[in-house]
Design a protein around this nucleic acid. Structure first.
Ligand code: FES
Ligand code: FES
Lengths: 140, 140
DNA sequence: CGAAACCCCGACTATTATACTCCGAAATGC
DNA sequence: GCATTTCGGAGTATAATAGTCGGGGTTTCG
């Protein structure tokens, strides 16, 4: 029941990018140093986020990473889904047909409801909000 | 972000016990067969639940398992906490001091809130409700 | 008493998921 | 053409999960 490091790191990366002035870039290495994340691992995560379209990556001198979407509409849900796949507490909600109990299982809807709540909550949190909150916290 | 099999199996065990007529018992083996769970594994889980007081176990002929608490006040939260430990989405909410970012981390309260929601939701679901729902579903 | 039906306990193994590492290649800009 | 940076995939290490095994107890019944 815990978020993986992959997700943790990926979220921090997105947050760093969200705090950047509009239009500027930074390298994976810089973020890795700042956040104390193994750089090789982080670069892999960055690629994953690039493939999902959440960041844009430019190779070469002066290249680096920038956010692929407007931070005001980029949500925690987008991030977690890109990093960890769909929100699914129980195996059964993802593959109901594989469970012989699914026809009469009373837990099924419990999980479904909880997942829906999580999705709802996560989709409310934008990286723009997070970035502003962090900026304020550092300043204050 | 997924429930372990341990929790899955444990919950099913508790549900089976909740569906039993008041005061009667059943053996670990019966539940294992019914639910297609490896019996050696399930017996280990049963022990864990016994130690947490959620079930009572009696050795000997005519022994077996019975619920350790009133199913009307036994909640899904109790079960999951006994089986998986505390509800904690992020490492940081459990061990804030270990994270150098905790002072200004904007995600921290997001996780906290989600955990609180989960706790709240899970604590509303009693095994009595679940047992009734399943009984109805099988009958209907 | 002795056998059968149960659970207790701890150590062990197997399997899978996670968390990384490495390296050659390709793009980019000076 | 050289430094910088991402890309891609293969490989390894570590840890968590899932499951096994064998010996030992307790209780009930005949
Ligand atoms: S649907 Fe499979 S255990 Fe509930
Ligand atoms: S408190 Fe550690 S990353 Fe937020």
């Amino acid at each position: 029941m815990q978020l993986s490091r992959r997700a943790d790191y990926g979220i921090r990366l997105l947050l760093e990018l969200s705090m950047l002035p509009e239009g500027s870039r930074t390298s994976t290495e810089e973020i890795a140093n700042k956040q104390r994340i193994p750089i090789t691992f982080l670069s892999k995560i960055a690629r994953q986020l690039a493939q999902a379209g959440l960041v844009r990556a430019y190779p070469g001198l002066g290249g680096g990473l920038e956010l692929g979407r407007d931070p005001r509409s980029l949500t925690m849900l987008d991030a977690i889904q890109a990093l960890e796949g769909p929100i699914a507490i129980a195996r059964c909600t993802l593959h109901p047909h594989e469970c012989p109990r699914s026809a009469f299982c009373p837990m099924h809807q419990v999980w479904k409801k909880m997942e829906a709540q999580m999705v709802d909550e996560l989709s409310r949190i934008t990286f723009d909000q997070l970035a502003q909150a962090e900026t304020r916290a550092i300043a204050g």
